[in-house]
Design a protein around this nucleic acid. Sequence first.
DNA 1: TATATTTGCTTAACACTGTTAGATAATTTA
DNA 2: TAAATTATCTAACAGTGTTAAGCAAATATA
Lengths: 199, 199
Amino acid sequence: MASADRKQRIKDDTRKSILDAAMRIGREEGWQALSMRKIADIIEYTPPVIYEYFANKEALMLELTKVGYRILAKDMKAAQEKHRLPEKQLEDMWLTYWNFAFAEKELYQLMFGIEVNCCVWDNSIPEAEVPANMIWEVIGELMGVENPPEDLICKRYYTFWSVVHGLISINLVRQGVPDGMNEEVLKDAIGGIIRSIKP
Amino acid sequence: MASADRKQRIKDDTRKSILDAAMRIGREEGWQALSMRKIADIIEYTPPVIYEYFANKEALMLELTKVGYRILAKDMKAAQEKHRLPEKQLEDMWLTYWNFAFAEKELYQLMFGIEVNCCVWDNSIPEAEVPANMIWEVIGELMGVENPPEDLICKRYYTFWSVVHGLISINLVRQGVPDGMNEEVLKDAIGGIIRSIKP
DNA sequence: TATATTTGCTTAACACTGTTAGATAATTTA
DNA sequence: TAAATTATCTAACAGTGTTAAGCAAATATA
């Protein structure tokens, strides 16, 4: 009876160990190698146990993408707090986004990959909005007016995101991009957009 | 003996029907639904027959991406030939690229998807260079000098490609992008880059 | 304390997947 | 017509996600 807490704690631990195991397989062998049986092996249970914690494989992976968004949000927040000027903040935040994509390569693929969870984006991941909102705010600030027009912020946000995400995708899929090209394109593009925002 | 030609013709037909069947499944149900057995059903053979034409499923899909690049190259060539001014050509070519991505959504995902054929990009798809080279040439022309510096063309090319591919990826994965935003971002970005190139 | 009930976990199966070896049927050659 | 070749299929292997049924241990009830 008094063991209810302990039981819950054990359950939480198991849930976390499932996510950890899945993440480990994803990172070490790629998502195509992730299987329920492999997870079960690692956590030393049989596969059906996993279904007591997650409805199915897709739900499990959705949880992992949420973890990814939380890490990204934390990183970007830290980057923002390193500067005072909005233009410097923006630059560092996007650079942080860039670095995250390669430091957590597999996680980024899971979060933005085209295959994995296509058509499951019906706002079921509120975590995804956190990094977006952070950028939105800084863009608004950079504009330097009282009530910055929503649609303009939106446009700028998508321009930023497109160029950064596009460059990342290209680099993740093909690895023959000339050396040094990435940094130049990235800095040029980000700088250009920032200049077009600044009053 | 004289039937060698006819035999070869039948073989070619079967090969094509395999590709057609695979393409149909990909388009209608998505690539995650593509299976060798489904292809076999459509072509009215048993699965092992497919392996006489393609080493494995991956090789079959690689062939489909090549088909995709050939269609894209044809479309872009037509777009270019509609104009004389390089800036107009560039604009139309990227718009054509954009339209292709949505008209041939599944094909585009196969060509540039992060999951499917990751790490198989060791220049094994010469077709992929055709559209790239077309853009390169027009950028060089737009610069208006005798020997345009390679690295600058390269940089511009990647900037173009990043923003367009990024915007496409975002739209293919999540479908909540505000209406009209895409066109604006696209036109702004392309226009901006073109202006930065023009002498 | 003895019985009933719930909980945790496993076994075994189903319907799939890509892929291959071996058998069989059809065609071509001698 | 008989032999050799080619075309095709059957059946299997090892893997996948997922679920139903059963067992055993912990808990709650009498």
